Amino acid sequence: MNGSLLLSQLLNGLQLGALLFLLSSGLTLIFGIMNFINLAHGSLYMIGAFLGATAYNASGSFAFAILAAVVGSGLVGVALERLIARPLYRHDHLYQVLATFGLMMFFNELASVIWGSRPYFAAVPQGLEGAVSLFGSDYPVYRLMIIGVGALVALGAWFLIQRTRFGMLIRAGASNAPMASVLGANVDLQKTLLFLLGAVLAGVAGALAGPILSVQSGMGEPVLILALVVIVVGGIGSVRGTLVAALLIAMIDTLGRAFLPDVLRAVFDASVANAVGPALASMLIYVLMAVVLAFRPQGLVFSARR
């Protein structure tokens, strides 16, 4: 096995894991702590990608692109919480799924109307378009930056939920909202702020993914499916579990797509191996989820609500 190729694929797995964590951390907090299923979370990722790409192409400033994604996705997230989520908190999950699924379809059509149905591209920001040498292997600076952002967000999210008064109040409101309200906590405001945090993280993930992926309508659905797998495997409501599961699933997918075809060529023709390898790598993710649900349904890490 080529050591340089292995290192590059490991770093690719870390980069994908960082993006998955940025998206999944907000989703697991909303689902695990607020007990609200938000299938429109992938749309917030798409909104962040479109706004970030548009802002960068218009201004040439990557900082402005991130700011546009943060503000835009945050405002949309707050609007969704106020207008859609809040009336549905006390209803069955089926109502939440139907409402947010409809929102997902709405945002896909809205994106097609505004930006068109063709993919929309954004260049890698100036100053981040080069590569650095790591143990004799060149790796893009931009992808390393994504890994660093994911690490910082993981540390920040864990500290916010586990070590701050805001996090304590959020967990108290999730466990017993009436009691927390009687003790003086503004539970409605806390839910809005938590929804805002999840929307911002999804928007940042989309803005960071824009320069390395094609930005297009519907791009939120595939990554939403992966994010749902991540929060189930890691433990719903657990930031640590989400980080562990995001990295594990990203590594399985990345390394499987890179090396399973080579392994299968020992048994099958090259054309068959090239087709079956990536498909098998994708299947392994869902096999992992099935195993976790069967033997550890609470996830790899206990949720923040326990």
Rank of each mutant, 00 (worst) to 15 (best):
N2F: 11
G3K: 06
L7N: 03
Q9M: 15
Q9H: 13
A18Q: 07
L20Q: 01
L20H: 02
L22W: 02
L22E: 02
L23Q: 00
L29D: 02
I30E: 00
F31P: 03
I33F: 08
N35H: 15
F36M: 12
F36P: 04
I37R: 00
N38V: 03
L39A: 07
L39G: 07
L44M: 06
I47D: 03
I47T: 14
A49M: 08
A53G: 09
A55E: 08
Y56R: 00
A58L: 15
F64K: 07
F64M: 15
I66S: 01
A68D: 00
A69E: 03
V70K: 08
V70Q: 09
S73H: 09
G74Y: 04
A79M: 10
L80N: 04
L83R: 13
L83W: 15
I84K: 04
R86C: 13
H93M: 12
L98Y: 08
A99V: 02
F101Q: 06
F101E: 05
L103K: 08
F107R: 01
N108I: 10
E109R: 07
E109L: 08
A111W: 00
S112F: 06
I114M: 09
G116W: 09
P119G: 05
Q126M: 11
L128K: 05
E129I: 05
E129F: 08
S133F: 10
L134I: 14
F135Q: 07
P140G: 03
R143Y: 03
L144Y: 06
V149Q: 01
G150L: 03
G150C: 05
G150F: 02
A157N: 06
W158N: 05
F159K: 12
L160M: 14
I161T: 08
R163A: 12
R165Q: 15
R165F: 11
R165A: 13
F166N: 04
F166A: 12
I170P: 13
G173W: 04
G173A: 12
A174I: 06
A174Q: 05
V182Q: 11
L183Y: 11
T192H: 11
L193Y: 13
L193S: 12
L194R: 02
L197T: 09
A199L: 11
A205F: 00
G206W: 02
A207T: 02
P211C: 03
L213A: 13
S214R: 04
V215D: 01
V215N: 01
V215Q: 02
Q216Y: 12
E221P: 10
V233G: 02
V233A: 06
V233T: 05
V239E: 10
R240S: 15
R240L: 14
G241A: 04
T242F: 02
A246N: 02
L247I: 12
I249T: 03
I249S: 01
L255Q: 07
L255A: 07
F259I: 06
V263G: 10
V263L: 15
A266C: 12
V267W: 15
D269Y: 07
A270H: 08
A270D: 13
V272G: 05
V272T: 14
A273L: 12
V276I: 15
L280C: 13
L280Q: 12
L280V: 13
A281D: 10
A281Q: 07
L284T: 05
Y286N: 08
M289C: 07
A290Q: 12
A290L: 15
V291N: 10
V292K: 06
L293F: 04
A294G: 08
L300P: 04
L300M: 08
